[in-house]
Simulated scan of single mutants.
Amino acid sequence: MVSTNDRRTAEGTEPEPQQPRHYSEEQILESVSPRRARKLLEATLAGGFRPEEDPARDNVAAGEGHMLLMPSVLGEWSGIKVATVSPGNPQRGLPRIQATYLLMDTATLSVRAFLEGNSLTTLRTPAISAVAADHLAPRDARTLVVFGTGPQALAHIEAFAVVRDFTEVVVCGRSPEKVEVAVEHARGLGLAARAGDAQDVRSADVVVCATSASEPLFDGALVPDSACVVAMGSHEPGARELDAALMGRAQVVVEDAATALREAGDVVLAIEDGTLCEESLVPLADIVTGAVAPATDRPRVFKCVGMSWEDLAVAVGIVEGSENDDV
């Protein structure tokens, strides 16, 4: 009998397996700018990928929270994000959401990279929101109203500042201290900024909702017909940031209808309330490719919950490490 080692010697030495690279938060944020992340996602949709092809994320109860398993395949690359959500962690001095990403080549399913998952999420979520806002927001948008003061709120301010020339950013939040930090963050980007409240949506061109709220943040009737609203804070069917009245009068754009009907409380609850119908949901891919035109006579709402393909598209951009900021 010929041993495995003898066979390898007779047939030629097999190549040493490639060692996976590890990407820290700092390396991830240095590798891909918010602008490039947006363009990576937009190019994926414009290239014909349909988010409905993505597997549904698996939600597993654990402890006082849950684990999320998010696999995806895009051509020669495959990957999975393992994320955990533990609501009590902030009181422990720990992040509410923690995550790790494994990137593999599709041909052999060998792991090529491990990426710190929270920073990947912080990068890709505002990037998909910015793709939507770039297509749905008024070209002359000047006022951005942001609900929330956490990492996603700050990242959305940075990502949205690239797609429109805002002259004012208004930050709304429960903690005056955290609001002031967010205001200073916006000012550090060269934007005029101030603290505000729910009434400021009256003059908003773009509204971003990036909170952990389970009830509507403002009266949807106050939102101008010309405005674009992005809600990304919830991925649970029983929680919403936007009221049913706004969802009913708006053109509602989602990453994928089936995903929204499973996970987006803003959509699910508005349908239950009878103001929104499932058939009216517009896939973001149709907006990007021009198959459906943005409405001009009513608000445009983009409700996102985050999908696996978004993590994969940005992770590939990080690993491929292009120095060119264009796709």
Rank of each mutant, 00 (worst) to 15 (best):
Q199D: 07
V223C: 10
V60H: 12
T275A: 09
V73Q: 11
A43P: 01
H156Y: 04
L269R: 14
N89L: 06
V131A: 08
Q152H: 10
A43K: 14
A56E: 14
V206Y: 02
E241V: 01
V181K: 13
A161E: 07
A198V: 06
C228H: 15
G93R: 10
P216R: 02
A285P: 09
A244H: 12
L94R: 13
T122P: 00
A182R: 06
H135K: 12
P126E: 08
A46S: 14
A210W: 03
V301S: 01
V229Q: 01
S322G: 11
L189Q: 00
R38F: 02
A244S: 15
R36P: 01
V301W: 00
E310T: 14
R240G: 06
R96T: 14
G173L: 03
I28R: 02
L276D: 01
N5T: 15
E64H: 05
W309I: 03
L246D: 08
A107K: 09
S119W: 10
G48H: 11
T149D: 04
S203N: 15
D286Q: 12
L242E: 00
R57E: 09
E272I: 04
C172D: 03
A213D: 09
M70W: 02
G12K: 07
N324R: 14
E263T: 03
A258M: 03
I128H: 05
Q18R: 14
W309V: 05
A61H: 11
V314G: 08
A258C: 03
V254H: 04
T4H: 10
T4G: 09
R36L: 15
A260G: 05
P95M: 12
E25S: 13
A83I: 06
V82N: 00
A107C: 01
P55Y: 03
A291P: 08
P224E: 08
L115S: 02
P294D: 07
E53L: 13
A62P: 00
A245T: 09
Q199V: 05
T259N: 14
T125G: 05
D225G: 10
F302E: 01
